[in-house]
Design a protein around this nucleic acid. Structure first.
Lengths: 148, 148
DNA sequence: TTAAATTCATTCGTGTACAAATGAATATGA
DNA sequence: TCATATTCATTTGTACACGAATGAATTTAA
């Protein structure tokens, strides 16, 4: 007896990696990162841009909190923040009320890079969604959010 | 005069990173990688699985070709293949007709891990798409492919 | 209040991901 | 044929991404 759902004559069940969501998600992300890199003018990565933009919204805040808000691991956000500090976009200071925390804030230069690149960031978003009509974009974004 | 499209009273134009496609794509991919990791039984990453599965389809082939078929950089596919060779899933051999190439093929163990994990890979796909109805899944996959 | 649990930041190790440079081998065209 | 271009694989350097472990600081609950 054959299990239902398998091919007749016990042919190998078909499996194609290149038809799985994961395969597409990885590539879609790769494409967006590439588009973003070519659109942005100050050598900022997508994650660095996320950290800067989010920090502008919620500053001052701790490193781990910024990581949580941007979906980055503690180890990941540390590296990202370190590089932004090194470039002078983010400033760190000890928290008076909590000896564990490092308080992050944007510097003048940090605010300036953000202002200078918001347009490019929007261009990157536009470029990534370019293959879709405006109707498709709305549907896509809605469904994409559901699987986050 | 104000540029059309901006807010009245020269309020700062709104920009939210956490509403951009890139932000969602990164997270969706992260979630899928996590689901895949917990579903798979042999400590295989999503990229390693892609390489193994694709190699089964097109073997024997060169390293760079496998990279192209799986959307991996030459440097990336090298690292992935090296780890698979080290674990005994992939075998390498010099190409008689082309002195530059390294011919890749699956070993017995390689074929075995694939067979042992196809089910888990499908479970991972299912888990990633779980928040969507079957109708939504079809639409989502179609649109996702368009932006790859 | 004090012991246990939690949070914060850091570090280590492994694994993608890609730009750029290199050298060897092959393919192309004048 | 022979110089040019292309392809292949490798290496270096930088940047995410996360598990796991550590130690210090703060919270909590008994």
């Amino acid at each position: 007896m054959q299990k239902s759902g398998e091919d007749k004559q016990s042919a190998a069940p078909e499996y194609h990696v290149d038809r799985q969501v994961g395969f597409f998600l990885r590539q879609a992300n790769q494409r967006h990162v590439a588009i973003f890199a070519s659109a942005i003018g100050d050598k900022l990565t997508t994650t660095q841009w996320s950290a800067l933009s989010k920090l502008k919204e919620i500053q001052p805040c701790s490193q781990n909190q910024l990581g949580r808000e941007t979906a980055m691991d503690v180890a990941t956000i540390k590296g990202v923040v370190d590089r932004l500090v090194k470039r002078g976009f983010v400033a760190t200071a000890p928290d008076r009320n909590d000896g564990r925390r490092v308080v992050l804030s944007l510097t003048e230069d940090g605010l300036a890079v953000i202002a200078a690149n918001v347009g490019a960031a929007l261009v990157a978003t536009e470029g990534t969604l370019a293959p879709l009509t405006s109707g498709e974009r709305m549907i896509f974004l809605e469904l994409l959010q559901k699987i986050c």
